[in-house]
Design a protein around this nucleic acid. Sequence first.
DNA 1: GTGCCGATGTCCATAAGATGGACTCCACAG
DNA 2: CTGTGGAGTCCATCTTATGGACATCGGCAC
Lengths: 306, 306
Amino acid sequence: MNSRLLIIHIMDKGVDMTGQSPAREPRKAHTTQPPCPAQQPPLAQPVQGAQVVARIALLLRLVGRNPSGTPLAEIVRDSGLTRPTVHRLLTSLAAEGLLDHDAVRHTWHYGPEVFVMGTVAAACYPIEELARPSLVRLAEETGESAFLSIRRGAETVCLLREEGSFPIRSFVLHEGVRFPLGVASAGMAILAYLPDAEVDALLADTGLGETETIAARWGAQHSPASIRANLERTRVTGYAVNPGLILEGSWGMGAAIFDRSGRPGWALSLTGIEPRFKPERQKVLGQLLLDEASRVTQILQRPPLT
Amino acid sequence: MNSRLLIIHIMDKGVDMTGQSPAREPRKAHTTQPPCPAQQPPLAQPVQGAQVVARIALLLRLVGRNPSGTPLAEIVRDSGLTRPTVHRLLTSLAAEGLLDHDAVRHTWHYGPEVFVMGTVAAACYPIEELARPSLVRLAEETGESAFLSIRRGAETVCLLREEGSFPIRSFVLHEGVRFPLGVASAGMAILAYLPDAEVDALLADTGLGETETIAARWGAQHSPASIRANLERTRVTGYAVNPGLILEGSWGMGAAIFDRSGRPGWALSLTGIEPRFKPERQKVLGQLLLDEASRVTQILQRPPLT
DNA sequence: GTGCCGATGTCCATAAGATGGACTCCACAG
DNA sequence: CTGTGGAGTCCATCTTATGGACATCGGCAC
């Protein structure tokens, strides 16, 4: 389960070696530029009068990347907040049951209250039950691991994972992992079916600094041009292919699911190693993905619930 | 749904007519007594330096009571906070995707982010899949509605609901509803298997004021004595019976589920109308509940998962 | 129509409360 | 033993949340 950590590490150590600013300093962000909308690339607007809420939400999102627990230092680093602040907020969240603190391993995870709230919320978001059968079928028929991701603002979040039978499995993707739209096949599949204007907006402003571009974080293979090229390919076939762009040799394919208003809000995807994604098989896998995505979409269209 | 809420109601309506301070003033609480452990009777300790976190958690819990949406006024009333504060916090939470604001109906619900986080958390709390089959069986075999509740501090929270076929159904209990331990059959079943010391603590201090007792909120049939009497009955049979104590004619029965350390952390329960809970049938239903609770308990005991 | 009521939503001066620099403590490696 | 890196704690400072007061909206009675 720490293979994931690995990736984080790799990325932290390697990709970010843009050279400049060895000591991070984004934490001063909130002190000076009140009109500045983007301190972090989350999904929130400026908002007035409750920055703590933004911080808490940020921390909750960060903790969520690792269901198996995240150490304080990692959260401090990735949040850009100071250690005392993060520690205090995490402690308070834990006191409320929203987080849990593993005192032995010094890690933080989601607490029972999050689970409880999520279960309640799940009553309003029935995607889970709707998509699980599709995931199972995909995993069984292909042998690869199958995933459901949801769009959240400019990101996708991996919600469900269904393991395939193939003995070599990638752990780049698992529950809670977030990617910007355009990175990973799920985000690519979703992005491909958003209106052009939104695509432009999403690919253009990644905050303010040019250091914050997707490419800076995820490598040159995620330059706007590369992403747009892949978008075109995705629009032609209907499904997205990620040819090892995140981790060499780790391929993925995805297809979008559309909500009642016709917008792509989720995606099904498959991941595996490169030899399992030869061109001929891509067509097969792509069709399977499209079939299942279409099935889920149709179920979603149907009920006028509420 | 903390007992705390109650007080607010009481105060607003009548009890606080002690003459002094018609305007509520419990909000000064945090300013003076730092060592005082009980400012609010939720599940949290004093905590230092992040009262906003407590407020946010409180609001999230309150919103969760009603998956279908809660108006601002209700949250303001039950939280004891001022309207501007509640409004600002809710707005901020909505901006983060943790809540959703129905601008037409002026109601607040859980947002997609809560659902996402919950789904991630669910990977660590597999009770859902473990218990669902039991709920389905219970609902099918009895015709009543079946529920899974979880213990959260001094409360139970209803997590899952499975409708029965019987055409008259009670909606006292549904996803997100919270009761103090000792109220409703699920909480009674759990309370009955907690150590005596804990039971005493839970039944004794319901905060600080004597106006905050469970009985004050849930009626004299929930006096400590009555609860203890019911506890005894529960310990004899193994299952709890709620003979319409919350709502006349709305009966319930529950059985506890035990975690790996042998503590009662969840409960299965059935609800229905009084004629369906005649003594002979109680035995049948009770046995079914015990069987299913035991089954879930055994599954929980088994895996040494991380 | 008009006026009342209860609700939501907004503003901004105030002071309450969150912040983070600096410190301690602990575990582990060399 | 000393050095390094991380977790956790403290408290003076000043940023940030607070809530009283106001604006607005929609429904309802007359």
